[in-house]
Amino acid sequence: MAGETKYRDIVREIALDQYGYVTTRDATEAGVPAVELPKLAARGGLENVAYGLYRVPDALPTPYDQFAEALLRVGEGAYLHGESVLALLGLGDVNPRRIKVATRRRARPRLPAFVELTKVRVGASARFYEGLASQSVADALLECRGRIETQELLNAAEQARGEGLLTTAEWQRVRKEIAS
């Protein structure tokens, strides 16, 4: 019983740093045997969300939970993409129906309807906003051309610049490319 309590504490600590979620991989890297997670779930200490993904049931909900879940479902190397980055940061009037997640590697997880998976080229890089891997704001704004009105994108870019999410060089590049 003492071992279970210790494992529960370790798993809980990991989950609270990830919006309430923990993967089997995270737990095993922290020294919790993989067989303990289903046991904790059976006793109510965790909820099984998907294969290898669990949630602490008493984690306080945040606006970022579904973004974190989408990234963890896709797995290592995944990051938010396009409109999802803008939605995460509250830039512009963006409310996508699905969370766009990009990955550089081949991934075939079973995904719920709220997640859209995109394979991207090797050169793309990710940044972290609110602790979640994401496409840079500049690249996300440019990615949304043709799907979001030009003026709305310019307003979002101005808001991002005001919030310190774009450097001067990024701001100038985004403004120029969106307007053209």
Rank of each mutant, 00 (worst) to 15 (best):
M1I: 09
M1V: 11
M1E: 10
G3C: 00
Y7P: 03
R8P: 01
R8E: 05
R8K: 05
D9Y: 04
I14C: 09
A15C: 10
A15M: 08
L16E: 14
D17L: 04
D17A: 09
D17P: 00
V22K: 05
T24C: 08
T24W: 09
T24N: 10
D26M: 15
E29H: 10
E29M: 10
V32C: 02
P33H: 02
V35L: 01
E36D: 03
L37S: 01
K39Q: 03
A41R: 08
A42Q: 14
A42Y: 06
R43F: 00
R43I: 04
G45A: 06
L46Y: 05
E47K: 07
V49I: 15
R55D: 04
R55A: 11
P57V: 04
P57G: 07
D58H: 10
P61A: 15
P61W: 14
Y64R: 07
Y64P: 04
Q66K: 14
Q66D: 14
E69P: 11
A70D: 02
L72K: 14
V74R: 02
V74T: 05
E76S: 14
E76A: 13
G77T: 11
G77Q: 09
G77V: 12
A78W: 01
Y79R: 01
H81T: 10
G82V: 05
L86M: 12
L88K: 03
L89A: 10
G90W: 07
V94F: 10
V94E: 09
N95A: 15
P96D: 13
R97T: 12
R98W: 03
I99Y: 07
K100R: 14
T103C: 05
T103N: 02
T103L: 00
P109M: 08
L111N: 08
V115F: 03
V115I: 11
E116V: 07
L117V: 06
T118C: 00
V120W: 01
R121K: 08
G123W: 04
A124S: 03
S125Q: 12
R127N: 01
R127C: 02
L132E: 00
S134G: 03
S134Y: 02
S134H: 01
Q135D: 08
S136L: 02
S136V: 04
A138G: 08
A138H: 08
A138W: 08
A140W: 09
L142I: 08
L142W: 09
E143M: 09
R145Q: 13
R147T: 15
E149N: 13
T150P: 04
Q151Y: 05
E152T: 05
L153S: 04
N155Q: 11
A156V: 09
Q159K: 12
Q159N: 05
G162I: 04
G164I: 09
G164Y: 03
A169L: 07
A169G: 00
E170F: 03
R173N: 11
K176V: 15
K176G: 13
E177V: 12
E177A: 13
E177G: 06
I178H: 09
S180A: 14
